[in-house]
Simulated scan of single mutants.
Amino acid sequence: MNAPAAPEALTVLYDGACPLCQREISYMQGLAEGSAGSGLCFRDVSAADVQMPEAERAALLARFHVQRADGSRLSGAAAFVAMWARLPGWRWLARLARVPGITPLLEVVYRGFLRLRPRLQAMARRAASNTQ
């Protein structure tokens, strides 16, 4: 019997300058490192050494994205579902999200979060500066 094929690489493109993103991605990286064969890589697109056109960087920083090995990208709820499918303890949520109608509902919720994100980021930054 053949061993299951390793999943193709999936690169999580995230905003490392965002305190909310930093916290979530740190957690997800820990899960990925503990899961042999997750196929997840993480790339901070806010980092100065990441070379790309500024319009592309702005688009990547505005929403959550993952990039497949072929270079195609998923964003928003679809990107979260693709990442969750690779992580232990989160695969059940990816399966649930694939039920017809659920991912579009998650996208609506994510868009609502994006409207609140600047205020939440400011609150997180203030909280961090108060603890230093």
Rank of each mutant, 00 (worst) to 15 (best):
A79I: 09
M83P: 01
N130V: 11
Q67N: 03
R23D: 12
L61H: 02
C18L: 15
Y27E: 15
R23K: 15
R23W: 15
R63M: 05
W90C: 10
G34H: 06
A69H: 04
A5Q: 13
P100R: 06
G76F: 00
W92R: 15
R63F: 10
A69Y: 11
C21L: 08
G34Q: 06
C41R: 13
T103I: 13
R68K: 09
A97D: 02
Q132I: 15
A122T: 14
M28H: 06
R117K: 13
L74R: 01
L20D: 14
F113V: 05
I25D: 00
G30Q: 08
Y110P: 01
S75F: 01
Q51L: 07
V50I: 09
Q121G: 09
Q51S: 15
P53N: 11
L105H: 00
E24C: 08
M52K: 09
H65F: 03
A32Q: 03
I102S: 00
A9R: 10
Y110F: 07
Q29R: 12
S26H: 11
P53Y: 09
R111L: 11
R43L: 14
R68H: 10
A85H: 03
P7E: 12
L116V: 14
L61W: 08
L74E: 02
P53A: 15
L74W: 02
G101T: 04
A32Y: 01
L116N: 08
Q22K: 12
A32K: 01
G89Y: 05
A5S: 14
L10Y: 06
R126E: 06
P88T: 07
A58P: 03
E56C: 03
A85D: 07
A62S: 11
S75W: 00
Q29L: 10
A48C: 08
R23P: 08
A69E: 11
P7M: 09
F80P: 00
W90I: 02
D15R: 12
A55C: 14
A128L: 05
P100W: 14
P7T: 08
C21N: 15
S75R: 02
C41M: 07
L93F: 06
P88D: 12
L105S: 02
A127H: 13
G112H: 07
Q29E: 07
G39Y: 10
M1W: 04
A77S: 03
W92S: 14
C18Y: 12
S26V: 13
V66L: 01
E8K: 04
A3V: 15
I25W: 02
L93D: 03
L61Q: 03
S26A: 13
A36D: 13
R23H: 05
P100E: 07
Y27H: 09
A6E: 10
M28K: 02
F42T: 02
E8W: 04
A82C: 02
